Amino acid sequence: MKKALLQACAVCVGATGAYAGGLDRSGQGVNILFEEGNVVQLRLGYADPDVSGSQNGVPSGNVANSFFSPGLAYKHSFNDRLDFAVIYDEPFGADVSYPSAYPLSQNPLAIAGGRNNDVLRAEADVDAITALLRYKFDGGFSAIGGIRGQRADASVAVPAAAGYSFDPGAEVDFGYVVGVAWERPEIAARVSLVYNSKITHNFSGNETFNLAPPPVPVPLVSVPSETEVETPQSVNLDFQTGVAPKTLVFGSIRWVDWPQTVLAPTNYVAITGSNLVDYEEDTFTYTLGVGYQFSEAFSGAVSVGYEPSTDALVSNLGPTDGFWSLGLGGTYSFEQAQISGGIRYTDIGDATTTTGGQFSGNSAWSVGLQLTYALN
């Protein structure tokens, strides 16, 4: 199979920005390790979700803001056995905000001199740099291992919980990646299984909230707070094989252990009796597609994606439950470069929040560009 065909399949799935689990952005792929020789790769994805619902008859409008997903990677072959890659991506993220009229944006304890004019919102930015080694054994087998450094930053406001907000500082912590792969290049067959460890962040910041008003009104207070948050462990199973001349079938299964991710700041739990963010169920995300090489220079691919709904109650800060998607991608090759583009439509599953909000009829459009350049 030509490089253009493989690139078209990759961008069809990965360069358009994921919406799995509501927070999954990059998919934590390591496919650059399987590129030939020395290469550099640049990705830019853009997603425009439309997620709306209502609570107590009050509409939310679109609560999910659009976002960009950049990526940069470099791969170097030391010899026929040993490869190295470094990858920058944004594995997880959130950008949700509600209107001021929404019930959870209303502060029941707002008083003179102590009003929090914020709205229900959550922003989370997670950046990661992953350094990987791949060693090739005889028989097409190889081992993968590496270290991931991850920076996490977040900000949350829940005015309905006594004007609550939490603004922890950014934290950098580390995890690891291990995996195995098998290849048979003559038929473009490959299977890889990669495990991404959880990463624990210890946030220190200020929790801000109203005290219940006594006879003399008490304004907002800001209390230093520390809390631990884990980004979840995950497993990626990727596969591909040639099935006919110029035709490739590919797919993936991604498992994410979302119940590991719990945000439970001390004062928020004391005010509400519940966690700020948690998940009841893990998720499995499935992708299946086919690519075709139309010419020496151009290849195209189509893929479908599916994440089953869990039917569990979800957080208002991530009001989605499962999805299905359809993606198209294409790659044009010339000399040492491949330029790829993709577009994907995602039908986002209906969800019920822990406070009784109903979200339905939602979707997202995503586009992506990728440039891969061979250095040798």
Rank of each mutant, 00 (worst) to 15 (best):
S204Q: 05
G27H: 06
T261L: 09
V180I: 12
Q370A: 03
G113V: 13
A337K: 00
S303I: 04
A124L: 12
V216C: 11
N56H: 07
D127S: 13
A157S: 15
V269R: 02
G71Y: 02
L132P: 10
L237D: 06
G163R: 15
S192V: 02
V63T: 13
N196R: 13
D138H: 11
P224M: 12
G305W: 02
E36I: 00
P49E: 06
N38H: 10
V367K: 08
Q106C: 02
Y195N: 06
G289T: 06
S100E: 08
V172I: 14
Q293C: 13
E183C: 06
T352I: 07
A101F: 04
A47C: 11
I147A: 13
V13E: 05
P219G: 15
N62S: 11
W365P: 12
G45Y: 05
Y102M: 08
S222C: 13
G140D: 06
R81T: 07
N376V: 09
L109G: 08
S295E: 03
G146C: 12
K2Y: 06
V367I: 11
G305N: 09
S222I: 10
G329L: 09
V194Y: 01
S309T: 12
G330D: 07
N316L: 14
V39F: 00
G29Y: 05
N316I: 13
G291C: 11
A312D: 08
S295L: 07
A297P: 00
Q150T: 13
A143L: 14
N316D: 15
S204F: 04
Y292N: 13
P99D: 08
I129D: 01
V158D: 15
D24N: 14
R115K: 15
V269F: 00
R43S: 10
I144R: 13
V156H: 15
G179P: 05
Y279T: 05
I187S: 08
Y74D: 00
G57E: 07
F141M: 04
G45A: 14
L5A: 09
A161I: 13
G163A: 12
Y268P: 01
S155W: 06
Q150H: 09
R121Q: 14
V63A: 11
